[in-house]
Write a protein that binds this DNA or RNA. Structure first.
Lengths: 253, 253
DNA sequence: GGCTATTGTCTCATTCTGCGACAATAATAA
DNA sequence: TTATTATTGTCGCAGAATGAGACAATAGCC
């Protein structure tokens, strides 16, 4: 986990937060055949971590997740999915966290609350990375998109968390596709072509898909609405445009 | 959540446990076309709850789950699956918990740690209910199997937790089938017929399945080993016996 | 030795999926 | 205006997967 604290909040006991419980985020960013995730970097330490946060005493768990995500991406009303809760003792190595704090000029006592054990609830999101304005938290220096295929070494068990998030994203893509698009900053533009959608799928699944089978499957999901308009782009046949149905039927498994 | 504490542990601050974090269990029990779950009852209160527990300071989350489950069922080495973490504020209504403690002769202070907010990690298991010896925890009076189709009213959000566990159990049944059987107290007896397996599926999924299609599908999963022996049961053709392969291949989705 | 309920397997129709074919077409170039 | 070209929508086919019934084999019972 990591931290959306203001500097004043670091030294006190973090008393406004639920103790020992954190949130970790795997924020997938898609745009034009690229899949990235958002990472924090701690200068002078060479350490990278997933964005994270804590839960306020009077805040729902899922609301806390939405709040922290908004703080990191400046995007509100994001579609978030909880995917696993990580609670191994081994996952929390105090050395990196101590290095991060000392690089910030803080010398924590041995039982500083940030150096204790945390259980962390993992969430993932999928957004258009051109629409986010990444903002580092108070302990980190940069908050940047990294290609999923070229991630730096991450602290703690964050590599495992990314892996599990990716598996869940892939497995539930059909089911969550509408969700990713019905919020403030949709993943695809409001209207899009079948080719746009296919590029999204291919990038996330990491494999090419056959065009006609893909079209057939997408239409059979019943979540798309075909618009009668056409495109004005390249020197070739104009594709139909689509948008996601509101109140789309939930696909039956 | 609920509690595996000894009476002495109730009044102190539960200092050995991670604060604010609990475990809730949906322990499915199967036997001969019956699907039940394990519930605790608190006498003199009419309240029913899922078994639950807490995590020790120096204990892995999943190990804590295994420990508590062993305490409730006397079964060690159980196959457990984490399925969701529940963190709404509304889920923790203090009134039932206070009633439970007062029925036990304890008068908790307003900020007693058991009356504070808990975030709870949900786990489910699936065992043969004839092999468990249910043991109530220190706050409850009985620990009993209840038919899933006739559950009493549960405290807090426990009905929702059961619902979500059942959905996950059904969705992941193929994938976890070997898991449920390769531990100390297997779900099915060591060797079993295809009809036994079909009854298990029909009971869990809550719908009848076609015999020949079911057989074809089960064999195609590649997790069964057919034994050349035969049965000696009724006045009819003897079925083959099966057992689960060790090192069965993971079914590809 | 016949009877009967259950089992293993086969077959057939239907649906789903992978994959290529082909005509339609929209902008550009000639 | 016409030819060119890349891309698109759809169709068709082969193979796989699935639903559903048919039928012979058989193990114990009377």
């Amino acid at each position: 986990m990591s931290h959306q604290l203001s500097p004043e909040e670091i030294s006190p006991a973090g008393v406004d937060f639920l103790p020992g419980l954190a949130l970790d985020f795997v924020i997938f960013g898609f745009h034009q055949n690229q899949l990235k995730i958002l990472l924090l970097e701690y200068r002078n330490t060479g350490l990278f971590a997933l964005p994270g946060g804590f839960i306020r005493q009077n805040e729902n768990l899922n609301d806390a997740a939405r709040r922290v995500l908004a703080e990191r991406t400046s995007l509100t009303d994001i579609f978030l999915e909880q995917f696993y809760t990580f609670g191994d003792l081994a996952r929390y190595d105090v050395a990196p966290m101590r290095a991060i704090m000392e690089a910030k000029g803080i010398t924590p006592t041995d039982n500083h609350w940030l150096l204790r054990r945390f259980v962390s609830v993992g969430y993932y999101a999928l957004i258009d990375f051109t629409k986010a304005v990444p903002i580092p938290d108070s302990l980190s220096d940069t908050c940047t998109w990294y290609e999923l295929t070229a991630l730096p070494t991450l602290i703690q068990d964050h590599r495992l968390i990314v892996q599990k998030a990716l598996e869940t994203l892939r497995a539930d893509l059909d089911r969550n596709l509408t969700g990713f698009n019905q919020w403030a900053a949709p993943l695809l533009s409001d209207i899009f072509t079948m080719a746009d959608l296919q590029r999204l799928y291919e990038t996330i699944l990491g494999q090419p898909l056959h065009r006609s089978s893909f079209q057939r499957k997408m239409l059979s999901l019943g979540i798309l609405e075909r618009l009668d308009k056409k495109y004005s782009g390249g020197a070739h046949k104009a594709p139909y445009l689509y948008r996601f149905r509101t109140n789309s039927p939930v696909p039956i498994k």
